[in-house]
Design a protein around this nucleic acid. Structure first.
Lengths: 204, 204
DNA sequence: CCAGCTTATGGACATTTGACCATATTATCA
DNA sequence: TGATAATATGGTCAAATGTCCATAAGCTGG
């Protein structure tokens, strides 16, 4: 990624900050903030685009900086550290592999939601008590995928196997010997809600 | 919070989704998406403002929906589903316990970063190969906490025990019989980087 | 039946927007 | 010395924006 001048960094930081607040600035707003003419900003934005930090999207002929997405490579989210180069501080640019955007995972427009996991029946799959699983609404599940099934008013996270006339819910806990539950497919109290696409653990 | 009609909910969801992508929609874009006239959107937005879901900010005389902030009370993050009320659709308001904001976890200003986990030495603590652990930069670790330690240019995630003259790195994998590693505290190739405060698994 | 709220359409308009033009200064580097 | 990149100002312009007007249909509750 091409490097930025100080001015360019300042402007990018300002834009990113405003985007975080759901409030994309206009070029004239940026200009005012830095006591510049609008055209100075126009050029700075041009450099940021050229260097790949801002990207135009959509078929817009170009109106509103709002239309200039942050590129995926722009520093949003938090840095992913890969290998650590010898001698370098851990957050040095050489060590940063990319940036993690959890917002993508949590894309609400796709009908995702989060379910707080109660119980330890899935610990062998790395889903612990108190974790949040990210659920994608869908009734289609490949056999063996981890899904959320609604039994009456109780939501359960298990490995789901759809068989001829029944649905098998298989836990993942060698230690506690949870039993696999079998449910009739015809039972209208049973509903496959969605697929578990992610898992988030906080406050460890 | 005053309740919304279905149409209003749809429009709000659309707006929120687009704001998450750093791409505030214009009223005409919304109109196009819902096959409406722009003025229908104008009125819907008016209702959303009246009910407090959208808030005008700044001294703008009113141009661009981008200028209409999401109010703090508007549902940010994705919904956390707790108990599922009998009969209700899973995303009904009755079922939503709160909203998960991962951004808080990933607060960059606090000097957090993400490390991609390689290997399965911590699976018994629910940290799998390929997971991203959220690391809080700090050299202070309570004994037994999961931390990141830099050995030369290799970053390791383990349970850390600081003893008199050595540091113990204890894996968590019953099956593979990983050995606990002991390091001299005086070794300058050894550095405690931070504490693991979260774990994120994507694309399951 | 009427009143009020919601949804909906079409037209008009001042304001703002990003793009573009010409021009100029400064600093760096070959 | 000359070329290039970056920063900066002024003016102009078509396109897009949110607001507002008038109008109307559908619905609910009094």
């Amino acid at each position: 990624m091409e490097s930025l001048t100080e001015k360019q960094q300042q402007v990018l930081a300002f834009i990113v900050g405003r985007l975080r607040e759901n409030h994309p600035p206009s070029q004239r707003e940026i200009a005012q903030h830095f006591h510049l003419a609008q055209n100075a900003v126009y050029q700075l934005v041009g450099y940021l685009k050229k260097k790949g930090y801002l990207v135009d999207v959509g078929g817009h002929r170009g109106l509103r900086l709002s239309e200039a997405y942050l590129s995926e490579v722009a520093p949003q989210g938090i840095p992913i550290v890969g290998r650590v180069a010898a001698g370098e501080p851990i957050l040095a640019e050489e060590n940063i592999e990319g940036y993690l955007s959890v917002e993508k995972l949590l894309d609400r427009s796709q009908g995702a939601f989060v379910l707080k996991v109660a119980g330890d029946s899935m610990v062998d799959d790395g889903i612990l008590d108190g974790d949040y699983v990210v659920v994608q609404l869908t009734s289609r599940l490949e056999n063996g995928q981890i899904g959320v099934v609604l039994l009456g008013d109780e939501a359960t996270v298990k490995r789901v196997f759809v068989q001829k006339d029944r649905i098998a819910l298989k836990p993942a806990n060698r230690r506690a010997r949870y039993k696999t539950r079998y449910l009739k497919r015809s039972d209208k109290d049973v509903r496959i809600v969605g697929k578990v696409v992610g898992c988030i653990r906080m406050d460890m």
